[in-house]
Protein backbone atom coordinates (compact mmCIF):
# COMPACT_ATOMS: atom_id res chain seq x y z
CA UNK A 1 0.00 0.00 0.00
CA UNK A 2 2.57 2.55 1.12
CA UNK A 3 4.92 1.29 -1.56
CA UNK A 4 2.25 2.06 -4.12
CA UNK A 5 1.73 5.59 -2.88
CA UNK A 6 5.46 6.20 -2.81
CA UNK A 7 5.72 4.96 -6.36
CA UNK A 8 2.78 7.06 -7.46
CA UNK A 9 4.22 10.14 -5.84
CA UNK A 10 7.52 9.46 -7.45
CA UNK A 11 5.90 9.25 -10.84
CA UNK A 12 4.40 12.66 -10.26
CA UNK A 13 7.76 14.07 -9.22
CA UNK A 14 9.73 16.32 -11.54
CA UNK A 15 12.57 13.76 -11.78
CA UNK A 16 10.32 11.15 -13.27
CA UNK A 17 8.55 13.52 -15.59
CA UNK A 18 11.89 14.89 -16.61
CA UNK A 19 13.27 11.50 -17.53
CA UNK A 20 10.09 10.65 -19.44
CA UNK A 21 10.30 13.86 -21.36
CA UNK A 22 13.93 13.28 -22.10
CA UNK A 23 13.02 9.95 -23.65
CA UNK A 24 10.27 11.53 -25.69
CA UNK A 25 12.56 14.22 -26.97
CA UNK A 26 15.26 11.80 -27.92
CA UNK A 27 12.83 9.44 -29.58
CA UNK A 28 10.84 12.18 -31.24
CA UNK A 29 11.73 14.96 -33.60
CA UNK A 30 13.25 17.50 -31.24
CA UNK A 31 10.33 19.85 -31.63
CA UNK A 32 10.14 20.76 -28.00
CA UNK A 33 12.54 23.56 -27.10
CA UNK A 34 14.94 22.61 -24.32
CA UNK A 35 14.58 26.01 -22.70
CA UNK A 36 11.56 28.22 -22.99
CA UNK A 37 10.64 31.45 -21.28
CA UNK A 38 7.26 33.12 -21.18
CA UNK A 39 6.84 36.75 -20.37
CA UNK A 40 10.07 36.62 -18.35
CA UNK A 41 10.53 39.85 -16.44
CA UNK A 42 12.69 41.12 -13.60
CA UNK A 43 12.63 44.51 -12.01
CA UNK A 44 15.24 45.99 -9.70
CA UNK A 45 13.33 48.70 -7.93
CA UNK A 46 11.97 50.82 -10.75
CA UNK A 47 14.40 49.51 -13.35
CA UNK A 48 13.21 46.68 -15.59
CA UNK A 49 16.36 44.78 -16.51
CA UNK A 50 14.61 42.01 -18.42
CA UNK A 51 11.22 42.77 -19.86
CA UNK A 52 8.60 40.28 -21.08
CA UNK A 53 10.99 38.01 -22.90
CA UNK A 54 9.39 35.09 -24.77
CA UNK A 55 12.17 32.89 -25.93
CA UNK A 56 12.70 29.36 -27.16
CA UNK A 57 15.97 27.50 -27.34
CA UNK A 58 16.04 24.49 -29.65
CA UNK A 59 18.08 21.62 -28.26
CA UNK A 60 21.63 20.94 -29.41
CA UNK A 61 22.16 24.23 -31.11
CA UNK A 62 24.28 27.25 -30.45
CA UNK A 63 22.52 30.53 -29.97
CA UNK A 64 24.30 33.79 -29.32
CA UNK A 65 22.86 36.62 -27.31
CA UNK A 66 23.97 40.08 -28.30
CA UNK A 67 23.08 43.50 -27.10
CA UNK A 68 24.80 46.65 -25.83
CA UNK A 69 26.19 46.94 -22.31
CA UNK A 70 23.43 46.90 -19.76
CA UNK A 71 20.94 45.31 -22.17
CA UNK A 72 20.16 42.64 -19.60
CA UNK A 73 22.09 39.70 -21.06
CA UNK A 74 23.76 38.61 -17.82
CA UNK A 75 20.55 39.21 -15.94
CA UNK A 76 18.74 36.98 -18.43
CA UNK A 77 21.31 34.23 -17.74
CA UNK A 78 20.86 34.71 -14.02
CA UNK A 79 17.14 34.15 -14.47
CA UNK A 80 17.74 30.96 -16.44
CA UNK A 81 20.28 29.56 -14.00
CA UNK A 82 18.33 30.55 -10.89
CA UNK A 83 20.83 33.06 -9.56
CA UNK A 84 17.98 35.59 -9.67
CA UNK A 85 14.26 35.03 -9.25
CA UNK A 86 11.91 36.40 -11.87
CA UNK A 87 9.48 39.12 -10.91
CA UNK A 88 7.04 37.78 -13.50
CA UNK A 89 6.89 35.05 -16.08
CA UNK A 90 8.06 31.49 -16.32
CA UNK A 91 11.15 29.55 -17.28
CA UNK A 92 10.75 26.01 -18.62
CA UNK A 93 13.45 23.42 -18.94
CA UNK A 94 12.41 20.47 -21.12
CA UNK A 95 8.85 21.54 -20.60
CA UNK A 96 9.05 21.56 -16.82
CA UNK A 97 8.47 24.89 -15.09
CA UNK A 98 11.63 25.63 -13.11
CA UNK A 99 10.91 29.23 -12.18
CA UNK A 100 10.68 28.49 -8.49
CA UNK A 101 13.59 26.06 -8.39
CA UNK A 102 16.88 26.95 -6.73
CA UNK A 103 20.13 27.41 -8.57
CA UNK A 104 21.39 24.15 -7.08
CA UNK A 105 18.40 22.20 -8.39
CA UNK A 106 18.73 23.73 -11.85
CA UNK A 107 22.45 22.98 -12.00
CA UNK A 108 21.71 19.37 -11.10
CA UNK A 109 19.00 19.15 -13.77
CA UNK A 110 21.46 20.10 -16.44
CA UNK A 111 21.78 23.87 -16.65
CA UNK A 112 25.46 24.70 -16.29
CA UNK A 113 26.88 28.16 -16.53
CA UNK A 114 30.05 30.16 -16.60
CA UNK A 115 30.32 33.65 -15.21
CA UNK A 116 31.18 36.92 -16.89
CA UNK A 117 33.17 38.01 -13.87
CA UNK A 118 35.59 35.20 -13.25
CA UNK A 119 34.20 33.11 -10.47
CA UNK A 120 36.46 30.30 -9.29
CA UNK A 121 37.75 29.09 -5.94
CA UNK A 122 40.62 31.54 -5.51
CA UNK A 123 42.82 29.78 -2.95
CA UNK A 124 42.54 26.30 -4.39
CA UNK A 125 44.68 24.83 -7.14
CA UNK A 126 43.51 24.61 -10.72
CA UNK A 127 43.29 20.85 -10.33
CA UNK A 128 41.16 21.08 -7.21
CA UNK A 129 38.84 23.61 -8.85
CA UNK A 130 38.17 21.24 -11.74
CA UNK A 131 38.13 18.16 -9.52
CA UNK A 132 35.33 19.67 -7.43
CA UNK A 133 33.27 20.16 -10.55
CA UNK A 134 33.92 16.58 -11.67
CA UNK A 135 33.00 15.41 -8.17
CA UNK A 136 29.66 17.15 -8.51
CA UNK A 137 28.99 15.57 -11.87
CA UNK A 138 29.75 12.14 -10.44
CA UNK A 139 27.24 12.94 -7.69
CA UNK A 140 29.81 12.34 -4.96
CA UNK A 141 28.35 14.85 -2.58
CA UNK A 142 28.21 13.45 0.92
CA UNK A 143 31.00 10.87 1.08
CA UNK A 144 32.86 11.55 4.29
CA UNK A 145 35.30 8.76 4.73
CA UNK A 146 37.67 7.96 1.87
CA UNK A 147 40.42 10.40 1.02
CA UNK A 148 39.34 12.55 -1.91
CA UNK A 149 42.64 11.90 -3.69
CA UNK A 150 41.86 8.19 -3.76
CA UNK A 151 39.04 8.78 -6.20
CA UNK A 152 41.49 8.42 -9.06
CA UNK A 153 38.81 8.52 -11.75
CA UNK A 154 37.86 12.03 -10.72
CA UNK A 155 41.48 13.11 -10.81
CA UNK A 156 42.06 11.62 -14.24
CA UNK A 157 38.97 13.33 -15.59
CA UNK A 158 40.08 16.64 -14.09
CA UNK A 159 43.51 16.29 -15.71
CA UNK A 160 41.89 15.50 -19.03
CA UNK A 161 39.68 18.60 -18.90
CA UNK A 162 42.62 20.79 -17.95
CA UNK A 163 44.26 19.63 -21.15
CA UNK A 164 41.13 20.27 -23.18
CA UNK A 165 41.21 23.95 -22.24
CA UNK A 166 44.97 24.08 -22.74
CA UNK A 167 45.89 24.69 -19.12
CA UNK A 168 48.30 21.77 -18.78
CA UNK A 169 51.33 22.62 -16.68
CA UNK A 170 49.20 24.84 -14.46
CA UNK A 171 47.51 22.04 -12.51
CA UNK A 172 49.10 22.98 -9.23
CA UNK A 173 48.99 26.73 -9.62
CA UNK A 174 46.72 28.54 -7.18
CA UNK A 175 43.72 29.84 -9.10
CA UNK A 176 44.05 33.41 -7.87
CA UNK A 177 47.55 33.60 -9.35
CA UNK A 178 46.50 32.73 -12.89
CA UNK A 179 46.39 35.33 -15.62
CA UNK A 180 42.98 36.58 -16.60
CA UNK A 181 42.84 34.43 -19.71
CA UNK A 182 43.87 31.36 -17.76
CA UNK A 183 41.11 32.00 -15.26
CA UNK A 184 38.61 32.10 -18.10
CA UNK A 185 39.93 28.77 -19.34
CA UNK A 186 39.61 27.34 -15.86
CA UNK A 187 36.05 28.58 -15.72
CA UNK A 188 35.27 26.74 -18.94
CA UNK A 189 36.99 23.57 -17.73
CA UNK A 190 34.78 23.62 -14.64
CA UNK A 191 31.69 24.07 -16.76
CA UNK A 192 32.70 21.21 -19.06
CA UNK A 193 33.39 19.05 -16.03
CA UNK A 194 29.76 19.32 -15.00
CA UNK A 195 28.87 17.79 -18.37
CA UNK A 196 25.49 19.49 -18.38
CA UNK A 197 23.19 19.38 -21.36
CA UNK A 198 22.97 23.14 -21.51
CA UNK A 199 25.96 25.45 -21.34
CA UNK A 200 25.38 29.10 -20.56
CA UNK A 201 28.56 30.95 -21.50
CA UNK A 202 28.73 34.56 -20.37
CA UNK A 203 31.42 36.32 -22.41
CA UNK A 204 33.96 33.51 -22.20
CA UNK A 205 36.60 35.65 -23.87
CA UNK A 206 35.96 38.86 -21.94
CA UNK A 207 39.19 40.58 -21.01
CA UNK A 208 41.35 38.01 -22.77
CA UNK A 209 44.36 39.01 -24.77
CA UNK A 210 43.97 38.59 -28.52
CA UNK A 211 46.32 35.60 -28.65
CA UNK A 212 44.24 33.73 -26.10
CA UNK A 213 40.92 34.08 -27.90
CA UNK A 214 41.43 31.48 -30.66
CA UNK A 215 42.06 28.71 -28.13
CA UNK A 216 38.72 29.36 -26.43
CA UNK A 217 37.06 29.64 -29.80
CA UNK A 218 38.44 26.22 -30.66
CA UNK A 219 37.16 24.75 -27.42
CA UNK A 220 33.65 26.08 -28.03
CA UNK A 221 33.70 24.93 -31.64
CA UNK A 222 34.82 21.47 -30.54
CA UNK A 223 31.98 21.24 -28.04
CA UNK A 224 29.53 22.34 -30.69
CA UNK A 225 30.80 19.75 -33.13
CA UNK A 226 30.07 16.90 -30.74
CA UNK A 227 26.44 17.87 -31.36
CA UNK A 228 25.46 16.88 -27.83
CA UNK A 229 25.24 20.21 -26.09
CA UNK A 230 22.89 23.12 -26.19
CA UNK A 231 24.94 26.30 -25.96
CA UNK A 232 23.83 29.82 -25.18
CA UNK A 233 26.63 32.29 -25.70
CA UNK A 234 26.84 35.93 -24.72
CA UNK A 235 29.51 37.69 -26.72
CA UNK A 236 30.51 41.06 -28.08
CA UNK A 237 32.97 39.83 -30.71
CA UNK A 238 30.86 39.83 -33.91
CA UNK A 239 33.25 37.74 -36.01
CA UNK A 240 33.21 35.05 -33.38
CA UNK A 241 29.41 35.12 -33.17
CA UNK A 242 28.93 34.85 -36.92
CA UNK A 243 31.43 32.04 -37.02
CA UNK A 244 29.78 29.93 -34.33
CA UNK A 245 26.08 30.66 -34.13
CA UNK A 246 23.15 28.70 -35.47
CA UNK A 247 20.94 31.57 -34.40
CA UNK A 248 21.24 34.94 -32.73
CA UNK A 249 18.95 36.79 -30.39
CA UNK A 250 19.19 40.48 -29.69
CA UNK A 251 18.40 42.05 -26.35
CA UNK A 252 17.91 45.76 -26.10
CA UNK A 253 16.89 47.57 -22.92
CA UNK A 254 15.80 44.26 -21.49
CA UNK A 255 13.49 43.53 -24.42
CA UNK A 256 13.86 40.78 -26.97
CA UNK A 257 14.36 42.75 -30.16
CA UNK A 258 14.85 39.89 -32.60
CA UNK A 259 15.65 36.22 -32.75
CA UNK A 260 16.66 34.40 -35.90
CA UNK A 261 19.38 33.02 -38.12
CA UNK A 262 22.56 35.09 -38.40
CA UNK A 263 21.51 36.30 -41.88
CA UNK A 264 18.09 37.36 -40.67
CA UNK A 265 19.60 39.28 -37.80
CA UNK A 266 22.22 40.96 -39.94
CA UNK A 267 19.55 42.05 -42.37
CA UNK A 268 16.95 42.97 -39.78
CA UNK A 269 16.30 46.66 -40.05
CA UNK A 270 15.23 47.30 -36.50
CA UNK A 271 18.31 45.55 -35.26
CA UNK A 272 20.53 47.51 -37.55
CA UNK A 273 18.92 50.75 -36.60
CA UNK A 274 18.71 50.14 -32.93
CA UNK A 275 22.03 48.65 -32.33
CA UNK A 276 23.90 46.43 -34.68
CA UNK A 277 25.16 49.12 -36.99
CA UNK A 278 26.92 50.88 -34.19
CA UNK A 279 28.40 47.79 -32.68
CA UNK A 280 29.49 46.33 -35.96
CA UNK A 281 31.35 49.48 -36.88
CA UNK A 282 32.93 49.56 -33.48
CA UNK A 283 34.16 46.03 -33.93
CA UNK A 284 35.49 46.70 -37.39
CA UNK A 285 37.25 49.74 -36.07
CA UNK A 286 38.79 47.63 -33.36
CA UNK A 287 40.19 44.95 -35.65
Amino acid sequence: MTVCTVLLNWMKSPCFIQSRRAEQVEGGNNVEPIIKTENLTIRFGGHTAVSKVDFEMPAKQLKSIIGPNGAGKTTFFNLLSGELKATEGEVYFKGIPITSMSAVARARMGLGRSFQITNVFPNLTVLENVRLAVQSKEKIRYKMYRHSMHYTKLLEEAHRLIEVVLLQGKEYAIASQLSHGEKRKLEIAMLLALDTEVLLLDEPTAGMSLEEVPAILDVIRAIKQTGEKTILLIEHKMDMILDLSDSIMVLFNGKLLADGSPEEIMNNETVQKAYLGGLYDENLAES
Binding site: E83, V104, A107, F115, N119, F121, S136, L194
Partner: peptide, 8 residues
Protein backbone atom coordinates in the same frame (compact mmCIF):
# COMPACT_ATOMS: atom_id res chain seq x y z
CA UNK B 1 27.81 31.03 -4.86
CA UNK B 2 30.15 29.06 -7.11
CA UNK B 3 29.65 25.96 -5.00
CA UNK B 4 25.95 26.33 -5.57
CA UNK B 5 26.30 26.64 -9.32
CA UNK B 6 28.31 23.41 -9.28
CA UNK B 7 25.22 21.74 -7.83
CA UNK B 8 26.29 21.40 -4.20
Amino acid sequence: QRTRSLGF
